[in-house]
């Protein structure tokens, strides 16, 4: 009888845990910010064409302070069990004569949620850095 009760409690405990738990991972973007600057990009060597071929069309393509600039963004929202996080980054590439002259990774936002997803947890939808 005691063993049955113990088994019942364990099953009930697992059941309740499963009921209150959930998980999701959403990503938006054409590069992986957690892997850092893509290794194929090298200052003074990589061309615009190589970047476009590998990463695809950038989210933003413009001239800033006289330099051709490509911007790719990456947003990631995670929600595991009872805790959620959000992080946004962008890869900024400047070109001189169609060759990479500067490349950097910049953080655009972050968030957390406890017993609730970080409210920007659906990247590229509700609120986005761009």
């Amino acid at each position: 009888m005691k063993i049955k009760m113990r088994f019942f409690r364990i099953i009930t405990g697992i059941g309740i845990t499963l009921l209150v738990s959930s998980c999701s991972v959403s990503t938006f973007g054409k590069f992986q910010a957690d892997e850092g600057i893509p290794s194929f990009i090298q200052v003074g060597k990589t061309t615009r064409e190589e970047i476009m071929t590998t990463l695809g069309e950038p989210l933003v393509h413009r001239f800033v302070v006289g330099k051709e600039t490509l911007i790719y963004n990456h947003e990631r929202g995670e929600y595991f069990f009872l805790y959620g996080t959000y992080e946004g980054n962008e890869l900024v590439i400047r070109l001189t004569d169609q060759i990479v002259s500067e490349v950097k990774l910049e953080k655009t936002g972050s968030g957390w949620g406890f017993f609730a997803p970080a409210t920007s947890n659906n990247p590229g939808t509700r609120r986005s850095a761009r």
Partner: peptide, 14 residues
Amino acid sequence: MLLVGCAKTRIGKV
């Protein structure tokens, strides 16, 4: 406890 939740999000570089 299960009916309580909070979240904080910030977007921007400055």
